[in-house]
Design a protein around this nucleic acid. Structure first.
Length: 762
DNA sequence: ACGGGCGTCTTTTTT
DNA sequence: AGACGCCCGT
């Protein structure tokens, strides 16, 4: 242990040796936060003789938990399975599995994910005859989640907002929503924390047990905790008060989902006698990258002001680049990936491309694919969100818990069994009237509803058989999907998509197989748990040599030698929905700070003059965050601004343009959105051309000499920009032909024959 | 019951 | 641009 402490700087040492009483560690990006936490765990166990089961350590993701466990075990040199180490949710689920019966739930409860929640809200609103045009399900779900974050139960919520018609309605939905969850023996994400709190508060014996057990509590990423999480740790720490929280108020980026940065700001008030330790030495980034980070974040109001410094080299200047559009932005990324590979011997896995929202990945992917650069995407459409996987999970859920009406609704007609909307409504109503589960309704359907009886008999038999079968989870998946006819239905489809689905299911079986091989205690319930609480970054492996694409949020806690921060435009980053609220802008700025500080050696900041997103094209000014960086510490500044101000030469295009001011709400007058559609008004554009003259210039490019008879399906053609391709479809339009072409490299495109300048190949 | 077609709406981030 | 919901015809 002596030599371990020697590996730490003075502040880090102080943070570790400060074991008793409340301790707030303000840890700047790259300051060795994880190191401090793991060493502190090791220190407690080895130096202070604390038993692992008397320590609770809470992290933000499962991946962070796993990493921390491994690093701590390496330090100590033995397994520390008895240490409670996990996310808020996984820790609470563990407690709930033991004690949720005190709230009248069964300990085999299921966890509802976001889409289950949505469906449930929808059903509730329907049942209450609430017009979804006046009150959208999304806003209701949001309101419910906010209420739960503030720890208001339905009755309290209704009471608090009595007199407010809108909120009274929401209160009614909330009440029913909560009842239906209970009917299904289900909890949602927020319930996991809140129910644990409730159990601890209502049962002194349980509170005493856990607050005695957890003599030392450590919490990571404290800036991203919410009110409920704060309450929970306050309860657990109530006996000993040995609580260490680590966080960085400049990295709080989850305000949108209820995280309250006030938690970290008020910690010293909430826990009197707090010792505050600031870790300001950065070990990750070059000096210049840190300068960028510091320059931007200082525009935020800040309580714990800190100035990150480093002994690392200054490094090269971060590069700023302006692309013509999102594709030229992507080309810039590729050039630099190739350059650094060549000049610095970088691997693909040394690069990460970070964007504000998932939909931005598309253009980048297109280019990466064309250039044959291997990549992977974190987030977006997740494995467990695919239809076939959700279906398989629903079957498992129903087998493990027959009162799970949601699982039943999902799969009762999957594959098709002739149970449509009408039958389903019937089943649901009978279930509600008799206060039994929908599964019970169909199981006992025989006498009163013959049609349902016939159509669901085989389904019930399969569930009945498998619920009492002793077999492994992977076998169970295969059996249920085979016996239910699910796989057969996919095979009968005989399409490539169905084939992919079957492969995904096979992958799912593999996952299940690995899970059950890990430990004999890994039951079906545990498996379903793990899935519900899994996040995508959890499975992020660095073994493949590929470029990583992800949102800035997913990048939290990670680091890469080279980082591309793309889409740095007003309206994109910061996003337009945060632009009228100074607090939201500060959160965006923290997000920018997080992005910048992921980079170890190279940082590229890019924006595009023109961008097509959500189906319309807009010209956004560069992000305000770029302007907050002194231009002396940016490479390529002049060039980028020149490109930005350059008058654009419209490309050969076959679309007519019409513009409208898209951002009038945000008072953002220099943003103009162009939208492809009919050309009716003739207001002049930003570039001093009228729409007519623009149309005329397009018309002039139209080549009337094209011999349309040469265009046939299967014909090989050549396009100046897209290269070689084959015509897959023709569609006459006025005096022209719309041609669908599969290009070898550029993929599928639809062009007008007379505009595109296609060469016929032999 | 079911599938296709059409129109509308929505675009943030996720444990 | 794409997802989703609704309506209609079978």
């Amino acid at each position: 242990m002596q030599n371990i402490l020697q590996e730490l700087n003075d502040k880090q040492k102080e943070a570790i040796q400060n074991t008793d009483g409340p301790c707030l560690i303000i840890a700047g990006a790259g300051s060795g936060k994880t190191k401090v936490l793991t060493y502190k765990i090791a220190y407690l166990i080895q130096e202070m003789g604390i038993k692992p089961w008397n320590i609770l350590a809470i992290t933000f993701t499962n991946k962070a938990a796993e990493e921390m466990r491994q690093r701590a075990e390496k330090l100590i040199g033995e397994n520390i399975n008895d240490l409670w180490l996990g996310t808020f949710h996984s820790i609470c689920v563990r407690i709930l599995r033991k004690f949720i019966d005190r709230l009248g739930y069964d300990t085999s409860f299921v966890i509802f994910d976001t889409s289950d929640q949505k469906t449930l809200v929808k059903n509730c609103m329907k049942e209450l005859n609430i017009d979804t045009k006046l009150l959208t399900e999304k806003s209701v779900l949001n309101a419910i989640s906010n209420a739960k974050n503030e720890m208001l139960e339905p009755e309290q919520y209704s009471l608090k907002y009595a007199g407010d018609f809108r909120k009274e309605t929401i209160g009614k939905v909330y009440t029913l929503y909560q009842k239906r969850l209970k009917d299904n023996n289900a909890v949602d994400f927020d319930d996991i924390i809140n129910f644990t709190i409730k159990i601890l508060m209502e049962n002194p014996d349980i509170l005493d047990y856990y607050s005695t057990k957890f003599r030392y509590i450590l919490v990571d990423e404290y800036q991203d905790t919410n009110k409920a999480q704060f309450t929970l740790i306050t309860l657990l720490a109530s006996k000993y008060g040995n609580i260490t929280v680590v966080g960085d108020n400049d990295q709080g980026i989850y305000g949108f989902r209820g995280a309250d940065i006030a938690n970290i700001l008020n910690f010293e008030k909430d826990f009197p006698g707090t010792n505050i330790i600031k870790l300001e030495q950065n070990y990750r980034c070059t000096g210049n990258i840190l300068k960028v980070a510091n320059a931007v974040i200082k525009h935020n109001q800040n309580k714990y002001e800190k100035k990150l410094w480093t002994e690392n080299d200054e490094g090269t200047l971060p590069y700023i680049f302006c692309g013509k559009d999102e594709y030229s932005e992507a080309e810039f990324l590729i050039e630099n990936i190739n350059r650094l590979k060549r000049e610095e011997y970088f691997k693909y896995s040394d690069f990460a491309i970070l964007y504000r929202m998932n939909s931005q990945s598309r253009a980048i992917e297109d280019k990466l694919r064309i250039e044959n650069i291997p990549y992977k995407i974190i987030g977006g459409l997740k494995f467990y969100e695919r239809k076939e996987i959700k279906d398989a999970i629903a079957y498992l859920r129903l087998i493990s818990n027959q009162s799970d009406n949601f699982a039943l609704e999902r799969i009762i007609n999957e594959p098709k069994r002739g149970v449509g909307k009408t039958s389903l409504d019937n089943i649901r109503n009978i279930a509600i009237q008799n206060n039994i589960s929908m599964y019970e309704v169909i199981k006992n359907a025989s006498d009163f509803i013959p049609r349902i009886y016939e159509n669901t008999r085989q389904f019930v038999e399969v569930i009945e058989e498998l619920k009492s079968t002793e077999c492994t989870i992977s076998e169970l998946i295969m059996q249920v999907l085979n016996k239910s006819g699910y796989i057969q239905a996919l095979k009968d489809e005989n399409t490539i998509e169905a084939e992919t689905r079957i492969q995904n299911i096979e992958e799912f079986v593999t996952v299940a197989n690995e899970f059950e091989n890990e430990s004999a205690e890994n039951t079906l319930t545990e498996f379903l748990n793990g899935i519900a609480l899994a996040s995508d970054t959890d499975n992020l492996e660095n073994s493949d040599d590929v470029v990583t694409l992800m949102t800035l949020h997913s990048a939290k806690g990670l680091e890469y030698p080279a980082i591309f921060l793309v889409g740095l435009e007003e309206g994109i980053f910061p996003g337009y929905q945060s632009m009228d609220n100074p607090e939201d802008i500060e959160e965006e700025r923290r997000l920018f700070y997080v992005g910048v500080t992921r980079a170890k050696q190279f940082l590229f900041l890019t924006f595009a003059k023109r961008r097509t997103i959500f189906g319309s094209t807009s010209y956004n000014p560069p992000s305000r965050f770029l302007k907050e960086i002194p231009k002396e510490i940016l490479d390529g500044y002049e060039k980028a601004m020149e490109e930005k101000d350059k008058n654009e030469e419209f490309e050969n295009s076959n679309v007519e343009w019409n513009y409208k001011n898209h951002y009038n709400k945000a008072d953002f007058s220099n943003v103009i959105t162009y939208q492809a559609k009919d050309l009716s008004n003739s207001t002049s554009t930003k570039f001093g051309r009228t729409a007519e003259s623009f149309l005329a210039s397009i018309q002039a490019k139209k080549n009337t000499d094209v011999d349309l008879s040469k265009f046939k399906v299967g014909q090989k053609i050549y396009h100046k920009k897209f290269g070689q391709g084959v015509i897959s479809k023709l569609e006459p339009e006025e005096d022209d032909i719309k041609v669908d072409i599969d290009f070898e490299k550029a993929g599928h495109k639809r062009l007008m024959a007379k505009f595109a300048g296609l060469e016929i190949l032999e």
